[in-house]
Amino acid sequence: MARTSYTDNLSISGKLTDLKQRVLFVIFGVIIYRFGAYIPIPGVNPELLEKFFHNQSSSLFGLFNMFSGGALYRFSIFSLGIMPYISASIIMQILSSVSPTLEELKKSGEAGRNKIMSYTRYATFVLALVQSFGISRYIASNGLSFVSPWQFYCISVLTLTAGSVFLMWLGEQITERGIGNGVSLLIFASIISGLPRAIFHTIEQARNGNLSIVVMLLVFLTVIGVVAFVIFFERAQRKIPVYYANRQYSGKNSNSYSSHLPLKINMAGVIPAIFATSILVLPSTLSTWFASYHHMGWLSLVSLYLSYGQPLYVVLFVVAV
């Protein structure tokens, strides 16, 4: 009896040690990610860059900056964030449903899934290369760099692509050696990176009298309620009963039994919201870019109506989701 208890204690201690190592690995990976988000790419004027991105906060750059945890506005080595990997994963999932070859690989077990994962990594590299060249060209064309264009392209494209590929690798390592999905944890770390600043700003407004204590408490309780509501629906599932009739094995009858098939209420997760935001922000961004051209002044109205928080934006967002 005592030996059994000693063995159980050793098993529990081993599990706790493994859990501790996994948690520490996740923390270490997130620290590396946040540290890299503050390392800027050389050759860019920081003052002009801050002013430029401040005017683009409601455009596609604002969305990318949120998912990169503010790295894009600082034009750091992790400016692209994990978005190229997410885009490549979504593309591969869609192609797996329409391509017979990829669909066959998807059904061929672990080897097929590893092959699809390799294709996803290659697609991530290509997307990161294209996106890094596009944003580098856009920044150089707006006079935000103080080096020659081609020199800036070489430095920026190589650094941004390498940073995005590194984040892909880091996310996979967190998934394998840490807790949960590594890519989701990196996105979560990016989004909540602005939370301390928002809390400090709210407290400072309440201290200066610009915001009453009652309103601040209502905002705090509303945030807690929304988070609890989201968690409730994320965890909620409907149990579809499955009944098995009597079966006969080796001449013996087995008793009938029942089970259930868990069906989550929110099967799609946050993917529809991300898609809807990306689709709505793209026309607004293009309208802002081309509104300065001759006979294109009407695009300013399009950009205004499709800005974040406008009634038309809210209606289209709900419909798209």
Rank of each mutant, 00 (worst) to 15 (best):
G143F: 03
F61S: 04
F229G: 05
E47L: 12
I31R: 04
F275M: 12
A228E: 14
F200A: 05
A245M: 02
S300Q: 11
V215T: 09
V98I: 15
Q205N: 14
M92P: 04
G171I: 07
V319M: 05
Q151T: 08
G309H: 12
I155C: 02
V321D: 07
S256H: 08
V165E: 08
F25P: 04
L312H: 03
L280F: 00
V242M: 09
F125I: 11
T101A: 15
S193M: 09
I12D: 11
K51R: 12
V227N: 10
S57F: 08
G178Q: 03
A71E: 10
N210Q: 13
V302F: 07
Y38H: 12
R247Y: 11
I82L: 08
T101V: 10
S303W: 00
S59Q: 06
R238H: 12
I240L: 14
F78W: 04
M168F: 06
K15D: 04
F61T: 00
I39W: 09
S89Y: 06
L211S: 11
Y73L: 00
V318I: 11
Q237Y: 10
S145T: 10
I271K: 05
Y305G: 10
F67R: 08
L211H: 09
A273E: 11
A236W: 07
N142M: 03
I199Q: 08
Y38Q: 14
F275E: 14
T4F: 13
E110H: 05
L49Y: 00
L160E: 02
L185C: 10
S212T: 12
M66G: 09
S59V: 02
I31G: 07
P196Q: 13
S97R: 15
I274C: 01
G14W: 07
L282C: 04
V230A: 07
R121T: 12
G171T: 02
I187C: 15
A2D: 11
I224P: 04
Q310V: 08
S303R: 00
Y33C: 08
S96G: 15
I139H: 02
T4D: 10
R235G: 15
S250L: 13
Q93N: 12
L306Q: 09
H294T: 04
S184L: 15
G43K: 07
